[in-house]
């Protein structure tokens, strides 16, 4: 797998993007609307220029503003699948997929193979207007791969697809990338896509990378507000009301007061994340060292292969991830009284 390394800085009025990363395998780039995800892809491919920055693809420098080096998009050999597919309306499916080889990038011989891999052989003579949204995205992915890119950048490629079509195209894409040895940088809003890619996850908020790590770690223990929302973790906003000990603060969240690990001063607003895996459940307030708790009733129970997510509704809503055996032992069901507890060290400050 080739490495994609970049440091980029761009200012547009009051909005600023500043980030640095080095990727060596499949990566999901997630973040709220307006955080700059598409801009990052445009900067990497050369469709937009940063104020300052450099980009290396597989060891080749394709952009370095300090040296006034900026290869045009055509010479960066980065594939880009746009959100709206951006197919060539006057060309057939086969001509769209064969466009890269026709202009000198990629081998024409693999066009038929890609058409087959993405089940487009039957549609080869059709024009993009005659295709469904899913078919158009399949053409866009096949077209990008036919140009033999060193990396494939995808901007929410499955957003326009219906729920049933998404996993099929995703599986087909991942299998093809695996065979071809092409790493992907996938912009997505979808947790399943971000964590299902099986690589790193980058979380971008307001033009900055606020979290980066393996998908498994981020899914289990996110440390940013968006990462938490994506991982269906517990995230809260509160305000420091006291500083009981050095490095600790008492934060008011709704009517509750929790102790959290931060030296923040009184009055400072904080965003907190409590990973479900760090939350314990009890049927009554126990004598324990856990300083923080939510007393309420079970509002929802959802069991999957990964465990059971039990949501307790009290002054706030909190979800715990427990084993089916623990759930059975506690005898918890929807409507049962329950107490959710977590330690000071379980709280992450965003």
């Amino acid at each position: 797998m080739s490495e994609l390394r970049a440091h980029l800085r761009l200012r547009r009025g009051a909005w600023q993007l500043e980030l640095e990363f080095a990727l060596d395998g499949h990566t999901a780039l997630v973040g709220p609307n307006g955080s700059g995800k598409t801009t990052v892809l445009d900067l990497l491919t050369g469709l937009a220029a940063p104020d300052q920055g450099a980009v290396w693809v597989a060891g080749d420098c394709v952009l370095d503003t300090a040296r006034r080096l900026a290869l045009p998009p055509a010479r960066r050999r980065l594939g880009y699948v746009f959100q709206d597919a951006a197919l060539f309306g006057h060309l057939s499916v086969a001509q769209n997929v064969g466009y890269g080889p026709a202009v000198g990038h990629g081998a024409a011989a693999q066009v038929d193979e890609l058409l087959g891999q993405f089940e487009l052989t039957e549609l080869a003579a059709r024009r993009p207007l005659e295709l469904s949204a899913g078919e158009r995205q399949r053409v866009a992915v096949a077209r990008a791969l036919a140009a033999e890119p060193r990396w494939l950048l995808l901007d929410e490629p499955f957003a326009a697809l219906d729920v049933a079509a998404r996993p099929l195209l995703r599986a087909r894409l991942l299998a093809t990338l695996e065979v071809r040895g092409v790493p992907a940088l996938l912009v997505t809003h979808d947790a399943e896509e971000a964590f299902g890619l099986g690589g790193e996850v980058l979380v971008l908020e307001a033009g900055r990378l606020v979290e980066q790590g393996p998908a498994e770690r981020l899914a289990a223990s996110p440390s940013s507000a968006f990462g938490a929302a994506l991982a269906q973790s517990n995230h809260y906003r509160g305000q420091v009301v006291a500083s009981p000990a050095p490095g600790q603060a008492v934060v008011q969240v709704a009517s509750l007061r929790w102790t959290v690990p931060t030296p923040a001063a009184v009055g400072v607003p904080l965003a907190l994340v409590v990973p479900p895996a760090e939350v314990l459940l009890a049927t009554a307030p126990p004598a324990t060292s856990a300083r923080n708790q939510v007393v309420g009733v079970v509002a929802a129970v959802q069991c999957t292969a990964a465990g059971c997510r039990v949501t307790v509704q009290g002054a706030v809503r909190i979800t715990a991830l427990v084993t089916p055996a623990a759930l059975q032992e506690l005898g918890l069901a929807v409507g049962s009284p329950a107490v959710a507890l977590f330690k000071v060290s379980a709280v992450k400050i965003c």
Binding site: P72, A74, R77, D84, Y99, R143, A147
Partner: peptide
């Protein structure tokens, strides 16, 4: 002609002249 279509051509390896001839003029 949608700008993203022109950008798609550029990323796929076509220079400005090729994009003009193969994409812009036909569209």
């Amino acid at each position: 002609v949608p700008p993203r279509v022109l950008q798609a051509s550029a990323v796929l390896g076509a220079g400005e002249a090729t994009t003009f001839r193969r994409i812009v003029l036909p569209l």
